[in-house]
């Protein structure tokens, strides 16, 4: 092959690659980690798309932090593969556009907040000007404290600084491991705003938090870990998709009862019936049901939508997991 040909080939390949959609912000498959005898993480696969906000949920010791550290190349997985922004995460260069707020956040106590930010800006290689670093401090509510030593900071202030550190290198992917564990209610609202602002700029976020309401409000997708395995994952609509409606009915004829049962699973408690709606319901099921029930002679006193919160869903997933374990190994 002549050099001209190979040059054209390389160019064609480059065009092809440039035309591909960007690699996911984070991707891992079959991750496994064992600490001595304890299996902390087993066969975890997950993906965070570009600009997507993914919540990582699970009880204490589920392996969330371990998965995050394996994604970032801080802990070596025993098996499995992890990629960050299209590069293997064992390669340090993969972390060039990644920001990280660790669960255990500590910064050099003998440096000032501004010096810590400058250090991280420098290490990230992003060439962030000083004014942008100051903006970053202001964003997390530390604007007046840049010249104070970190050693004198309160815990919440250190966590705010950690957030600024995670954001300072112009990241395309931000990993926040319990970012609000030390924050006051105002700080939590700030974090929520920051995460939503990141999404609006197309920055992907992996958010691990025990505050489910927070996750429910900002996340596009949720991954639930339990005992080192993925217990459930999906968009909020998928996870909470199983909606229900409660009806107060009297004079319920057998024909009307059949009509109810045709829709889905029915739980009856006196005059109240709870009917599960299918996930692909386009909004016509409930009005149609009411019309049919009335025409079948039933008297409809009340129709109430039942909302499942993410918290109830999470508890359900974890209890189901515990129950199936109690039922014996399959």
């Amino acid at each position: 092959m002549s050099t001209v040909d190979s040059g054209a080939g390389v160019q064609a390949a480059a065009d092809l690659v440039a035309g591909l959609p960007p690699a996911p912000a984070a991707w891992c498959t079959g991750l496994r980690k064992q600490y001595r005898k304890h299996l902390a993480v087993e066969d975890v696969s997950l993906q965070v798309g570009r600009g997507e906000i993914v919540g990582l949920l699970g009880p204490n010791g589920a392996g969330k932090t371990t998965v995050i550290k394996m994604l970032l190349g801080l802990v070596r997985p025993d098996a499995g593969e992890a990629m960050l922004l299209g590069q293997r995460s064992a390669d340090p260069a993969a972390r060039a556009r990644v920001g990280y707020l660790p669960e255990l956040f500590r910064y050099q106590p003998w440096l000032t907040a501004a010096e810590v930010l400058a250090l991280h800006a420098r290490l990230s290689g992003a060439g962030v000007p000083a004014a942008e670093q100051r903006d970053c401090l202001a964003l997390v509510g530390l604007s007046g404290r840049g010249d104070d030593r970190v050693g004198g900071f309160s815990k919440g202030m250190q966590q705010r600084l950690g957030l600024a550190v995670a954001l300072v290198g112009r990241p395309e992917f931000v990993v926040l491991d319990e970012p609000t564990s030390a924050l006051d209610p105002l700080g939590r609202a700030d974090v929520r705003d920051i995460v939503l602002e990141l999404r609006s700029r197309g920055v992907a976020v992996l958010l691990n938090s025990h505050l489910i309401g927070e996750v429910e409000r900002v996340c596009d997708r949720v991954v639930v870990l339990d005992r080192g395995r993925v217990a459930a994952s999906g968009t909020l609509a998928e996870l909470l998709g199983q909606r229900e409606v409660r009806l107060h009915l009297t004079d319920l004829s057998p024909a009307a009862q059949q009509r109810l049962a045709a829709l889905g699973r029915v739980d009856r408690e006196g005059e109240w019936s709870t009917v599960a709606l299918s996930a692909d319901d386009d909004g016509t099921a409930v009005p149609d049901l009411v019309r049919d029930l009335v025409s079948l002679g039933a008297r409809v006193h009340a129709v109430e939508p039942v909302r499942i919160s993410l918290e109830e869903r999470l508890l359900g997933i974890l209890r189901d997991g515990a129950a199936s374990r109690a039922a014996g190994p399959s």
């Binding site: 340090p92 060039a96 990280y100 255990l104 500590r106 991280h120 290490l123 550190v165």
Partner: peptide, 14 residues
């Protein structure tokens, strides 16, 4: 031990 290294080594450095 304290976690200072955690955020440093999450930077793109060997």
């Amino acid at each position: 031990e304290s976690g200072i290294a955690l955020s440093m080594l999450a930077r793109p450095i060997r």
